[in-house]
Design a protein around this nucleic acid. Structure first.
Length: 561
RNA sequence: UGGGGCGUCGCCAAGCGGUAAGGCACCGGGUUUUGAUCCCGGCAUCCGUAGGUUCGAAUCCUUCCGCCCCAGCCA
């Protein structure tokens, strides 16, 4: 019973249950997991799920989690990716042992294991062309047939494999195959290729090797060499588990990790495959891997998400085997609840309309005290200058408002947050454009700070900024990258055609309160009534912030409009 | 029509033979100088389907249905 519950009383997922049992039964005394990214792209939120799982389990059970780069395909991999991956894992708040590991470090051992497989007649060099290999493999419903090279002698195989390694043969001319069963109903077991010739420059081993081991062969042995106890991967590898086990069993290794598969993460209104993300980056559909709209770790970081919010998100969605698509709202909810307690409040007007307080002295400036957080006085307050001419949000005035509209309109009185109650007098409309250019109001001097001595109620509270003292800032409003919940649902439509053309709106002349002068890159704030924003850590300077909208506030009014 | 998986509230997800947790969303109500936050309440007589076993089933057995993955010298 105890093993099913975490300290917080949350039930254990099926993987943690298995591990708890293994620990209790004494099968293992310490768990070692691993996070094995291929350095061929940036990490995304789906990887965060795996990272939180693997590092999380290690942390909870006093074990360890290795960061191991699965770098067996030099044609797709690059050092720049290993750097970004390390940075992202660290940023998420996790630590790997002594140093990062690389499958490529095991190439010499892997080669020896392959030779050993040949010696026990469980691997052979095959000279069928890629095309022929496919034909010989059979189909899902028909068995394959054996390669004519399948029954070479051990000596000949050893010689050929050695010559593959020495670079004697051309790419594609020879492969090493496991000798298993061409009639297996599991296609992965029909003599899978375990080594191929690739004359590419490897980011770590340079030109030392011209033969590279395949994933199925490499992964299990790497796990074994690192004494991994539980090898956690996604569902599509379920069919590969027999091969994982076959390699280790055939080599009779001293350690045999247990592979367990779980469902990968899908989120609504986005795509998660690295291939597709790469396509968006290369095709300039977004501004790079760390574009704030991207669900990459670096994109989310730049957007203003915190490590804790991502970790909480992963905890919330849980681990299971059923394929799911999580609503974006769940992710947004996590960052809101984090920023709600930590982000200082500020005021900014995105779409300014001028308000003139007719009875306020020209040239007078008052410094209004504004709390940095309504529920947390410890966060202190700042002063916001109030003057005769102000800006309010164009949305906060309506000529003919409905009853339920809690803002400014003809004959209405509203509160300017932390300032005064103001009453509508008149407004001016530009004859040509029909746009309202200014609104005249009067203020009640008795209501300084926003409270009416007579206790009268007003329609609502709106944010504002002094027209003279405001600082113009650039604000970017981000929205979901895709128009549809599942951009991959329709196989006949290119996912790129489903992108949301309005996912990034740049507001270059928003008006912010002067305290934003002090904002540092990466600082996170809430603009009252608008949402959470952060100073873009690439493009901001102190005194000249570029703000990214992380997420809007919940809006029960906008939703009913 | 080969093999491997999965089907519990709109979206996730507990449940492990004793009579359906929780979160998000949604709907009410209260507080509020952010239509935010916070608080209170509501939200599956039912667990893809049809049978069976049992005193008792979402949990065990069988049938059928639906969905996903696999035929890279990618991972």
């Amino acid at each position: 019973m105890e093993t099913r519950e975490e300290s917080e009383g949350r039930p254990l997922d099926f993987i943690r249950q298995i591990i708890a049992e293994d620990l209790q039964s004494g099968k293992h005394h310490r768990t070692i997991t691993r996070f094995p990214p291929e350095p061929n792209g940036f990490l995304h939120i789906g990887h965060a799920k795996s990272i939180c799982l693997n590092f999380g389990i290690a942390g909870e059970t006093g074990g360890a989690c290795n960061l191991r780069f699965d770098d067996t395909n030099p044609s797709k991999e690059d050092v720049s990716y290993v750097e970004s991956i390390k940075e992202d894992v660290k940023w998420l708040g996790f630590h790997w042992g002594k140093e990062a590991l690389y499958a490529s470090d095991y190439f010499p051992q892997l080669y020896e294991f392959a030779a050993a497989l040949i010696k026990i007649d469980k691997a052979y060099v095959c000279q069928l062309s890629p095309d022929e290999i496919r034909q010989y493999r059979g189909t899902l419903t028909e068995p394959g047939k054996e390669s004519p090279y399948r029954n070479r002698s051990v000596a000949e195989n050893l010689d050929l494999f050695e010559r593959m390694k020495s670079g004697e043969f051309a790419e594609g001319s020879h492969v090493l195959r496991a000798k298993i069963d061409m009639t297996s109903p599991n296609v992965n077991m029909r003599d899978p290729v375990i080594y191929r010739i690739l004359k590419d420059h490897h980011h770590r081993t340079a030109d030392t090797w011209v033969i590279y081991p395949m994933y199925d062969y490499t992964h299990c042995l790497s796990d074994m060499l690192e004494n991994i106890t539980h090898s956690l991967c996604t569902l599509e590898f379920e069919d590969h588990r027999p091969l994982y086990d076959w390699v280790l069993d055939s080599l009779n290794t001293p350690c045999h990790p247990r592979q367990i598969e779980f469902a990968r993460l899908n989120l609504s209104y986005t795509v998660m495959s690295k291939r597709k993300l790469l396509k968006m980056v290369m095709g300039k559909y977004v501004d790079g891997w760390d574009d704030p709209r991207m669900l990459t770790i670096s994109g989310l970081r730049r957007r203003g998400y915190t490590p804790a919010s991502l970790r909480n998100f992963c905890k919330t969605i849980g681990i299971g085997k059923s394929e799911s698509r999580i609503d974006m709202g769940v992710l947004e909810n996590e960052i809101r609840s984090d920023l709600n307690v930590s982000a200082p409040r500020r005021m900014c007007v995105l779409d300014p309309i001028k308000v003139i307080i007719d009875n306020y002295p020209v040239g007078q400036v008052e410094e209004m005290a504004a709390m940095n957080h309504p529920q947390n006085p410890k966060m202190g307050e700042r002063r916001v200058p109030f003057t005769r001419e102000l800006y309010i949000e164009r949305d906060d005035f309506m000529e003919d408002p409905p009853k339920k509209y809690h803002r400014l309109g003809p004959d209405r009185e509203v509160r300017l947050r932390f300032a005064y109650l103001i009453r509508y007098v008149s407004h001016v409309t530009d004859a040509e454009s029909g746009k309202i250019t200014e609104i005249h109001c009067t203020y009640d001097p008795e209501t300084r700070g926003g409270a009416a001595p007579d206790g009268r109620k007003v329609k609502g509270t709106i944010h504002w900024v002094s027209a003279e003292k405001a600082m113009p800032v650039t604000v970017r409003l981000f929205d979901r990258l895709f128009k549809v919940e599942d951009p991959e649902a329709d196989k006949n439509v290119d996912f790129l055609d489903q992108m949301n053309p309005h996912s990034k709106i740049v507001v270059s002349n928003a008006m912010a309160e002067p305290s934003l002068m002090e904002l540092h890159p990466d600082d996170k704030i809430q603009f009252e009534r608008l949402g959470y924003f952060c100073a873009d850590h690439v493009e901001s300077l102190i005194g000249r912030p570029v703000l990214n909208r992380t997420v809007t506030l919940k809006d029960s009014w906008g939703a009913n409009k």
